[in-house]
Every structure is written in C-alpha cells, then in structure tokens.
Design a protein around this nucleic acid. Structure first.
Length: 228
DNA sequence: GCGACAG
DNA sequence: ATCTTGTCGC
C-alpha cells in the first residue's frame, strides 16, 4: 500500500493505523523548538487528480520576513488509501513527504492544511508530519474534527478562543479575518499551545488563510492552471 | 442506538 | 477533496 518508509511498518489496516497514531502521539512535544528568528517557513497542502486516483502535494517555501515565496514544488503519487475521518495522514502524508523532499530545504517552521493535535488521538496530519520529519509544525484547518469551544471569537482580526476536547485544550479558533469563519489552529510538533495562534497570525495578510497554507492551497488545487 | 466526522 | 455562476454582505 503505502510506498514511503515512514509507513513501512504499517500493515494497512485501520486498526493498526489507529494504534500507530496513539504511539506517535506520545512523541509530540508541545514546546517551542524553533529559532527565535524565523528565516524560512513552509506551507503544505494536498489535492487530487484523475478522480482521486492521483494524490498531488504542494510545498511552498517562504521568506519568513518578507513572506515572499522562494520556492514551490508539486509532487504526485498514486493515491494509497481512501479518506477516512481521523486517518487523513495515512492518505495524504506520503505525498507531502515527497513534496518536502523535492523542496530540499529545511524550513524553520511548517504549516500544514489540517489539524495538529486537535484530533481524536492527538495526531492530526500536521502533528504526524512533525514527528516524522522532526520539523516544528502547526496545523491550520477550516473545520473542527473533534472538540468544541465555549464561545466564538470576536469579529476582530486576531481574536481567538480555546478549542477543548475531553477536558483538555487541543487548539484555538482563530479569527484570521473579520466576518470570515474562524480557522482551527493547533500545534503539531515543537510548538507550544500558547504560541500557535500568534505564530499563525504572524503570516496572515489580507486573506483568511496564512500565506504558507494559502499559497500551497492554490498549487495543490487546480485553481492556478498549473505547473509541475 | 444515533449522529458527527480534517481533506 | 471535487463538480461550479452568480450573489449577498462587509
């Protein structure tokens, strides 16, 4: 099934995938582990072609200071698994890792479209990506998978409220843009809960999505009649 | 048992 | 995720 070494020991079953998530979740560290001054950051997202038969991942490297894109890569692989809520990383991570490979560079921080620890077993695709690569990561999703917030964030840009699940905070609902649905931001690897929202807002310009994820989104989807 | 369910 | 034009609201 999966062709990437990170999935070499997976027997292909849903049960084993869940067990692997629980084990990998133990390795997630919620402590800021990135340079004080970010040099480069990257955004990752996935899209599909050929009716889902082909998985296409996009990676965009940006200058953390100017937010200007420095490099863009698109990787394609044969789709390895259907979409199953909670097991998204087993479907999309192989392609994302290939895109990171093509990037060659080592960004100081990575943003992945999807959840970090805001997941049933605390291992959303951004957290999985971080544990496997060792890179600091943050998950930026558009919808909640699990958990709930007591209130909604104020309409002011940058406002946020906690997303909780089973007695613990698993992320934030962040109003990145006024009058737009809040983003669900959660730490992946080497990022503290308290820093996740700030770090994300740091890269939001005039759109709902932060630049890293927004640019990767355009490349992964077929909106920008593409390249690669 | 019944719904909810990232992309 | 993906198929797709116009339209309402800030």
């Amino acid at each position: 099934m999966a062709a990437h070494p990170a999935f070499a020991d997976w027997d292909g079953s849903v049960a084993h995938a869940r067990a692997m998530q629980s084990e990998l979740a133990q390795r997630v560290v919620l402590r800021d582990g990135f340079p004080k001054t970010l040099r480069t950051i990257a955004g990752f997202d996935v899209g599909f072609e050929e009716d889902g038969a082909v998985t296409r991942a996009a990676a965009v490297l940006l200058d953390a200071e100017t937010l200007q894109p420095l490099q863009s890569e698109v990787a394609r692989i044969e789709t390895v698994m259907p979409y199953v809520p909670g097991l998204l990383s087993f479907r999309e991570l192989p392609a994302l890792l290939k895109a990171l490979d093509r990037l060659g560079a080592t960004p100081d921080l990575v943003f992945v479209d999807g959840h970090g620890i805001a997941h049933p077993r605390r291992l959303g695709i951004a957290a999985h990506f971080g544990v496997v690569t060792g890179l600091p990561s943050i998950g930026v999703a558009k919808k909640i998978l699990v958990g709930a917030a007591t209130t909604v964030p104020h309409q002011m840009r940058g406002a946020y409220v906690a997303l909780r699940h089973k007695g613990e905070q698993i992320g934030w609902l962040l109003r990145s843009k006024p009058n737009c649905n809040p983003l669900i931001v959660s730490p992946g690897q080497h990022v503290a809960m308290a820093s996740a929202a700030d770090l994300t807002m740091r890269f939001v310009t005039r759109y709902r999505l932060p630049e890293p994820t927004r640019l990767a989104d355009r490349l992964a989807s077929r909106r920008d009649e593409d390249r690669g």
